[in-house]
């Protein structure tokens, strides 16, 4: 079934332009034991958009994107990707959907028993089932060149710095040409210069591969570079929405505290 036909059409009331909502979340709730992490999350991600989700640690940012890829299941509410309810997808359908979603983990999550080349080869041979060695080599080199780390092709993850791991993690994710990218705190633990490089790389990759992205962060420099729109999450619900400039000059004290 062509998922393009199933995109939910959302009318932008301000401009009158029709936007394709590739991710649509409505009244999402998630608890762990007695702790309510997501109390009422509703949002939409439009095609080609870079959406930044800001929030303090423990506010439920990572939980919300883990629900999107089916790593966690919501307790209540609706979570649709390309119009499909994620919690209702069967195993094969979930796998097919996951191929269209790239997830960059906070740590990079490189397979530490494999070289960089093997890390990038893994999704090509296991997910896309490619077997042509020349084609695989070409794709790996192209992707590593894109993130500026072609010379690290034979290195082990333990030989890489934090920033390099994130770049390789990004290359491994993008090698499947996903339509949606989810970034879980992509600049956490990096120095300001490397953080800026990663933020600019996210923007470059979004422009090159035309992905729609959700970037979970509390790094305002990253948000400023990458965001088309920002949502602020607090106590399991979104409390503010707008562009970087709108929120920077807005009245809400909690939102303002992120910009100080």
């Amino acid at each position: 079934m062509d998922t393009n036909n199933k995109y939910e059409q959302v009318a932008d009331q301000k401009t009158g332009n029709a936007k394709e909502a590739v991710v649509s979340i409505s009244h999402l709730k998630k608890s762990f034991g007695t702790k309510e992490v997501l109390t009422d999350v509703s949002m939409e991600l439009n095609r080609g958009e870079n959406l930044v989700v800001l929030g303090k640690s423990g506010s439920g940012k990572s939980v919300s994107i883990k629900c999107m890829v089916g790593l966690l299941t919501q307790d209540e509410g609706s979570l649709k990707i390309f119009g499909d309810e994620v919690s209702e997808l069967k195993e094969d359908a979930l796998k097919a959907m996951r191929i269209k979603i790239g997830f960059l983990f906070q740590s990079g999550a490189l397979y530490d028993s494999m070289t960089v080349k093997e890390n990038l080869e893994f999704p090509l041979t296991r997910v896309l089932k490619l077997s042509d060695k020349d084609d695989i080599q070409h794709r790996i080199e192209e992707m590593l060149e894109g993130v500026g780390l072609l010379d690290a092709i034979d290195k082990m993850p333990s030989d890489l710095s934090g920033g390099m791991r994130k770049r390789i993690g990004l290359a491994r994710t993008l090698i499947l040409k996903p339509e949606i990218m989810l970034y879980d705190e992509p600049t956490t633990g990096l120095d300001p210069i490397t953080s800026r490089e990663i933020s600019e790389l996210i923007l470059q990759m979004q422009q090159k591969y035309h992905t729609s992205s959700i970037i979970i962060t509390h790094d305002m420099a990253c948000a400023k570079i990458t965001a088309d729109r920002i949502l602020v999450l607090s106590k399991g619900a979104f409390i503010a929405e707008g562009s970087y400039e709108d929120l920077e000059n807005g009245p809400d004290e909690l939102v303002q505290s992120f910009f100080k």
Binding site: V69, R98, I99, I101, F122, R126, R172, L176
Partner: peptide, 11 residues
């Protein structure tokens, strides 16, 4: 999160 990374990649 290496196992999660494998799972979300569709492997």
């Amino acid at each position: 999160e290496q196992i999660d990374a494998m799972e979300v990649s569709g492997a």
